[in-house]
Amino acid sequence: MTRRNYIIRIMSRPHRPPIPLSEPQRRVLIQLRIEGTAPRTRLAQVLGMNGATVTRLTQSLLALGLIEERESPEAVARGRPLVPLTVSGRGGWAIGATPHPGWLELVLVDFRGRPLVHDTTPFDSPDPRVFARAVEARLQALAAAHGFMRGQFLGMGVAVPGYALSGDRNRRAVVDRVAGWDDVPLAEIIGDVLGMPVWIENDASVAGLAEYYQDGIIGRYRSVLTLFLGHGVGGGLIAERDLFLGEHGNAGEVGRLFPGHGDRPSGIDLLRTLRAEGVEVDSLADIDGLMATHRAIIDRWTDRVIEQLDLAVLSGIVWLDPGAIIVSGALPLPLLRRIADGLNAIGRRRGDKYRATLPPVLASTIGSKAVVIGAAMIPIHSITSHQAVI
């Protein structure tokens, strides 16, 4: 059996983490993601385990290549229990993919969640099988260029602009531009073409996952609400360090608060606003170049969007009690920062004498890439997730 056939064979069961871990192993791994680095003594203390148990667990994770030691002169001088441990990027790699109008986007991340390759290619088909074949062609080229087949492949997450049907997250009600994806078993269709495990999830939900794994977020907050302003508007929820999807897989469908026949806090709405003012603009990628020349129009739109999103923010605070709220999306990062600042200002002015701790509203640092990075994080997150599948 060739190495390629072996890799395909061990990846033939979609939705099952290829590295099965025990609950104690998962606890050690997620704690290292939270802290970045920690010695065995720190892990024992924070996890409530004895030293021998932590030693045994970390040895097994070291053998699997999921964590690694970081030598330091002080740690070596004082003994192995103080050698810092961290999640190893060599523990595996994963792919995220999503279709856009006229192009598809791919990213490959290592086990730490660091993007290794970001790739875009022309693509314009509503058929998921054509999408899968286009992804396969790009992966073959990237594998040849970067040698990724030498590593352990964990699977691919696909971000879909649509909500789950009948409680089955593999079947989606989607937008017209990917009409062939509507109400079909996407994981099976795409996975059969690629010969690998495939996870399907809403684009805003995976954006929330990507935002949560960013430095300064996962180590500080247990629960986070992400508002993603792309072509539409959606939400991603992290509750107690896990992706919260709800009973039917549609938690975070913020767009239902803003019916499509009216003004919406979405990228498509911004394009329509600009076009109504006589501005020639084709896509959200053009907005950055208009920030200076058409600032008055964009400022008026932004002020209205801040007022609209306050309802979603307040609802999220009431129901989730998150540690932070992140404004993400396909808009320019300065525009996301302005929206976040405006929402914070509304919160400060509310004056309702509410004395509990309120979450800060933060702006994304990765913007539109959150979707494809989050899709790639699904196979990795599934290894330490408390959920059986995502």
Rank of each mutant, 00 (worst) to 15 (best):
F228H: 15
R3H: 13
I190Q: 09
G232R: 06
A77P: 04
V158M: 07
D176F: 12
L270R: 06
R220L: 11
T2R: 08
L243W: 07
L245Q: 10
G374S: 12
T226E: 01
A276D: 13
Q214A: 09
P161G: 03
L237E: 08
A144I: 00
M196T: 15
L229V: 14
A97D: 11
I34N: 09
M291E: 08
V76K: 14
I218Y: 15
G316C: 03
L139Y: 14
L320V: 15
F153K: 08
V83F: 09
D352Q: 10
H146F: 15
G219P: 04
L362F: 04
P101F: 14
P334I: 02
W93N: 07
L32Q: 01
A370Q: 11
A340C: 03
V135L: 02
R241F: 09
L274H: 05
A97F: 10
A292M: 11
V87L: 01
G167W: 00
A159N: 08
L32V: 00
P115H: 02
D215A: 13
E69A: 12
L61M: 02
M149V: 11
L358W: 11
V281M: 02
L225H: 08
R4Q: 13
W103C: 02
I189Y: 07
R133D: 09
L225G: 02
T55I: 04
L229H: 04
P99V: 15
L194I: 00
L274W: 13
S88K: 05
G252V: 03
K369E: 12
G260A: 14
P360N: 07
R171C: 14
P73N: 09
A375Q: 04
E201M: 10
G234R: 00
R169I: 15
I298D: 02
P259F: 07
S382N: 11
V174Y: 06
G79C: 07
I34K: 15
R304V: 03
I8C: 11
G113V: 00
D282E: 15
D119I: 03
A276K: 14
R33E: 10
V54M: 06
A164G: 15
V327K: 01
T98I: 12
N344C: 09
A75Q: 05
G65T: 10
P115N: 04
A324Y: 01
R133L: 07
G278R: 09
D286K: 05
I297Y: 13
V254T: 11
G278F: 10
N202V: 00
E188I: 06
T357G: 11
P126H: 04
S328E: 08
G230E: 04
L85Y: 11
H261L: 14
G51R: 13
F228D: 14
H248I: 09
I366Q: 10
A137V: 04
P126C: 00
L257K: 01
G289F: 13
L336V: 01
V372L: 12
D203F: 00
A285V: 13
G260P: 07
I287Q: 03
T120M: 15
N344F: 06
R9Y: 13
I298E: 01
V389E: 14
I268L: 14
Y212E: 08
I339E: 03
A132D: 02
S382A: 14
V224K: 06
R78Y: 08
S385E: 02
R42L: 10
T273Y: 12
G316D: 03
K353L: 09
W181E: 02
E35P: 00
I317Y: 07
I189G: 03
S60C: 05
I200E: 08
R172Q: 06
Q214L: 15
E188L: 11
T37Y: 12
V46M: 03
R241H: 12
G208H: 01
A94Y: 10
